[in-house]
Each structure stands twice: as C-alpha cells, then as structure tokens.
Amino acid sequence: MTFRLLCFTLLLTLTLPLQASGKKDGSHIQPDNLYPRVKIETTMGNIVVELDRARAPITTNNFLRYVDKRSYEGTQFHRVIPDFVIQGGGVDKDFRELSKFPNIFNESGNGMKNSLYTIAMARQNDPHSGNRQFYFNMADNPSLDPGRNWGYAVFGMVMEGTEVLDAMALVDTHYHARIGWADVPKEPIFINKVTVLPPQ
C-alpha cells in the first residue's frame, strides 16, 4: 500500500508541473471560445477587440497570456503614426522594456489582412521575433501583409472604440531624444487595464 501511495505521489509530482506548463501559452483562457473579446482601458478611452483564435491561435493565445498576467497594465502606446499604426504594449512609463515570454511563430499567412482597425503583432526584422508588443492598423496597410517575404500577423479586429483610436492618431508626437525614438506622443497614452470579457 505504501509503495502504491509512493508511486501515485511521484506521478502527481511529475505530471502537475507538466499540466501547469501546458497552460502557459494562454490556451487555457476560454479554451472553447474561438473569438474571445478583450477590453483595453486606456487614458483616452476604452477599446474592445475580438481576437481570432481560429486563424491565429498562437498569436491570440500569446496575447491572452499577457492579459492574464496583467502585464499590459501600466504600459504605454509609444509609437503613433497617423494613417499607419498605433503601437504599444511593451514599455512602461519610463520607456523600459518589460519582461517577455519566448518569441512566437509568425502567423502572417493566416489570410487576415492588415486593414483598418485590425490588431496585429509587432516584431523586429526577424519574422519570428513577435512577442508582447502589438499595434492597431490605422489604415489599410498592404505593405505589412505577406508576399514574397513574411508579413505581420493580424489576430483580431476592433469591435468598439474606433473613435478612441482615431483620437489617439491625432495626438502630437515628437522625437524623444533620450531614447532615440520618433513618433512618441508628447502626452503619454497609457493602458490602465486589460480584461477578457465573458463569452457572448
């Protein structure tokens, strides 16, 4: 009996971390909902985004795990370019880069286009360097779609708050000499809270 109990305890000890690690990609958040909705509360108003787990499961789950960890709260939209993009989610009020999960596979070939009011994953030159930063398309941006080269993965659509994004796109920006970035809002735009909404 003691031997069986020992084996069971050992099995439990080995499987629990595996189960926990299997949930680190965000897939445990509303797992049966292919189109989870997220509310992003900013200093300029609220935005509701419907994510597309059917066509961009890796990117959607990655975004949701940052939401689940409340990791977007207190970040700022540090790049605003009218008729192009509004980008954020990666730096705090002092422009310090925040901790990240591992980079994810680029799902830009999922059929979704970088069209007006879509949300997409920001990245560096490496096509698979997407991580925590995201952007809203403020125009139809076919130059960001895949072609002969990798594009930028779209993973959702703004359902409410387009007027908030329109207002953001009009804020005054400047070259921030200390950090060496252009298109930085003179008056910071912060994300106060991000929550996953109940399934519809």
Score class of each variant (00 low, 15 high):
Asn61Trp: 11
Asn61Lys: 14
Asn61Met: 11
Asn62Phe: 07
Phe63Lys: 06
Phe63Ile: 03
Phe63Ala: 13
Phe63Val: 14
Leu64Met: 00
Leu64Glu: 06
Leu64Val: 08
Arg65Gly: 00
Arg65Ile: 07
Arg65Cys: 01
Arg65Phe: 01
Tyr66Ala: 02
Tyr66Phe: 08
Val67Met: 05
Val67Pro: 03
Val67His: 02
Val67Ser: 01
Asp68Arg: 09
Asp68Glu: 14
Asp68Ile: 00
Asp68His: 09
Lys69Leu: 12
Lys69Ala: 15
Lys69His: 08
Lys69Asp: 13
Arg70Glu: 13
Arg70Lys: 14
Arg70Ala: 13
Arg70Gln: 15
Arg70Asp: 13
Arg70Tyr: 12
Ser71Gly: 12
Ser71Pro: 02
Ser71Met: 08
Ser71Cys: 01
Tyr72Ala: 09
Tyr72Glu: 10
Tyr72Cys: 13
Tyr72Asn: 12
Tyr72Leu: 09
Glu73Met: 02
Glu73Lys: 06
Glu73Cys: 06
Glu73Leu: 00
Glu73Thr: 12
Gly74Pro: 09
Gly74Cys: 04
Gly74Thr: 11
Gly74Asn: 04
Thr75Gly: 00
Thr75Lys: 05
Thr75Cys: 00
Thr75Asn: 14
Gln76His: 13
Gln76Leu: 15
Gln76Lys: 15
Gln76Pro: 07
Gln76Glu: 05
Phe77Tyr: 12
Phe77Gly: 12
His78Phe: 15
His78Arg: 13
Arg79Ile: 08
Arg79Ser: 00
Arg79Leu: 04
Val80Thr: 09
Val80Trp: 02
Val80Glu: 04
Ile81Asn: 00
Ile81Phe: 04
Ile81Met: 06
Pro82Arg: 13
Asp83Met: 05
Asp83Asn: 15
Asp83Leu: 12
Phe84Thr: 03
Phe84Val: 05
Phe84Leu: 09
Phe84Gly: 05
Val85Asp: 05
Val85Ile: 15
Ile86Lys: 11
Ile86Met: 13
Ile86Ala: 10
Ile86Pro: 10
Ile86Trp: 04
Gln87Met: 08
Gln87Ala: 10
Gln87Ile: 06
Gln87Tyr: 11
Gln87Glu: 10
Gly88Glu: 11
Gly88Asp: 11
Gly89Asn: 02
Gly89Glu: 02
Gly89Gln: 08
Gly89Thr: 08
Gly90Val: 10
Gly90Gln: 03
Gly90Thr: 01
Gly90Ile: 07
Val91Ser: 01
Val91His: 07
Val91Ala: 01
Val91Arg: 15
